[in-house]
Design a binder for these strands. Structure first.
Lengths: 279, 279
DNA sequence: CTGGGGCCTGCCCCAAGGGGAGGGTCAAGG
DNA sequence: CCTTGACCCTCCCCTTGGGGCAGGCCCCAG
């Protein structure tokens, strides 16, 4: 029988002795034999394949908890899982790359050419709103639903950009912070009173006139939550350049919220990411 | 004075309250004022910029220890540092991508088309060797030096592939495991005796005849240590296919070592990654 | 039978916070 | 003035995937 001690097995599997003892303890890779008297672990060469697979997965930062399930899969299923895992990793990497680019551009004082900041004046508006606390997952689905409801053709429309549906993020929406988010639809003042009767879960309020700095984020379907902080920082850099309050208070998420406007223009719906400020 | 509590500061900086308390404790981002009676932390808006920078760097997985130094740099230097940091990250990502590809190819049973495994017979040879324990950093420099020494034109050459300089990795070379690595130069048997007199730190030994499975790794200058395990696994997969010992023992790094052959062919030096086995 | 290397368990340590207990503070409303 | 609820404090334990070390067996070769 072709046994070896833990040291040799470690060298040949490219795992550390410490890791092997851990994997034994958690049942992921028990030695083929453990001498009860001494406690010595003995491994056989046919355990190397599993060990090397574990080592590879660890090198890809797959958590041990996942690995425990994965090593029971057959090759094809594991390959499929890896494909999916890698897709996610590529995604995160791309997000980080955008963040690095944005940071470097901002720090080196160059103009950010990724996002062009524009300004628009928004008049006082009567808006129909619905406000919810949502997790990131819900935000997308619920958003779609509310946007559809609010675009309901039977509601009279406000002319121009000021009539687009928008959402206000009053707080951060992430795994452990759930908004709130408010979806809004401007309605003509003339219609507001009549609507007040049949509101349902909607509320009617008046938004003050303000100025918005915004960047265009492209098609609605392509929105990725990770890009919003980049847009936000572009707005902030712009604000600094414009000397809109050195303390960072002119752009005021805490007052008027970060906004995403859904403009259903010809050619498909596109988004703006906007920060309102009160001059 | 435009102070805010830790909660508001957390929201506006996209850092958690917990993180802020930690950064205070370690002096990275102390509040502008701490009420001594209550222990309450109060921050000012002009601290937001630093806080947001820290948050961005953390999102890039920069360790806090590094961040502590980085936030004192000016924009240009920090941008430069980020560029370098990112270059490394891209590198690691590319390495992981190669590993995933290799794994998926191997697991789904497809032939690995990245590396074509070839076989060659190596006759018994007299070799001039120098063996050292080296760290990864040293391996490269020391390797260059020894290869140059061993290629010394005054030594008689063995004809053909069998005459190429090669290195044997007897153990893993990584941050915490230092080899050993042996650099070798075959010499004709006829010259061996005469050489024995003026050996210096070189040793002369006889390598048994064996067969080597190998893959071609491209130019010498492009070698990256991270690719070698991939090549090794390609060899191992090939060995399995050839039924060269199901236990994984026929390919025997533990016996004959993993080899890298430096072939100084016309067109520049290229490397082979080889595993010797004893039929 | 003795030395040296291999191996054992058990304990503490790391980053970068998260979660919660138990208790003090602040500001607004009654 | 009092209460209530939101906010904040410190302290302690928990996480992942091991690394490092202490103190003590074990095993094999000479």
């Amino acid at each position: 029988m072709d046994e070896m001690g833990i040291g040799e097995f470690a060298r040949r599997s490219r795992l550390s002795v410490k890791a092997l003892r851990l994997y034994d303890e958690m049942g992921l890779l028990p030695p083929s034999r453990v001498e009860s008297a001494s406690g010595y672990r003995y491994y056989t060469p046919d355990q190397l394949e599993r060990a090397r697979l574990i080592a590879s997965l660890r090198r890809l930062d797959v958590p041990l908890a996942d690995i425990a399930g994965l090593v029971e899969l057959d090759g094809a299923d594991l390959a499929e899982w890896l494909g999916e895992h890698w897709r996610v990793a590529e995604d995160e990497h791309a997000t980080r790359r955008r963040l690095v680019n944005a940071l470097v551009v901002e720090l080196s004082g160059r103009r950010d050419d990724m996002y062009e900041v524009k300004v628009r004046d928004v008049p006082e508006r009567h808006v129909l709103c619905v406000k919810r606390h949502v997790t990131p997952a819900q935000a997308w689905d619920l958003g779609k639903e509310f946007i559809a409801r609010l675009r309901d053709a039977r509601l009279p429309r406000v002319e121009g950009t000021a009539g687009d549906v928008f959402a206000i993020y009053w707080g951060e929406v992430s795994e452990d912070s759930d908004g709130p988010v408010e979806w809004c639809r401007p309605v003509p003042e003339s219609a507001a009173e009549a609507l007040a009767a049949r509101l349902g879960d909607l509320t009617l309020r008046v938004e003050p006139a303000h100025r918005e700095a915004y960047v265009e984020m492209g098609p609605y379907e392509d929105q990725r939550a990770e890009d919003w902080p980049l847009a936000e920082s572009a707005l902030r850099a712009w604000a600094k350049e414009q000397r809109l309050g050195e303390g960072g208070l002119a752009i005021a998420p805490e007052e008027l919220g970060m906004r995403v406007t859904y403009a259903f223009r010809p050619g498909g719906p596109v988004c703006d990411f906007a920060a309102a400020y009160a001059e």
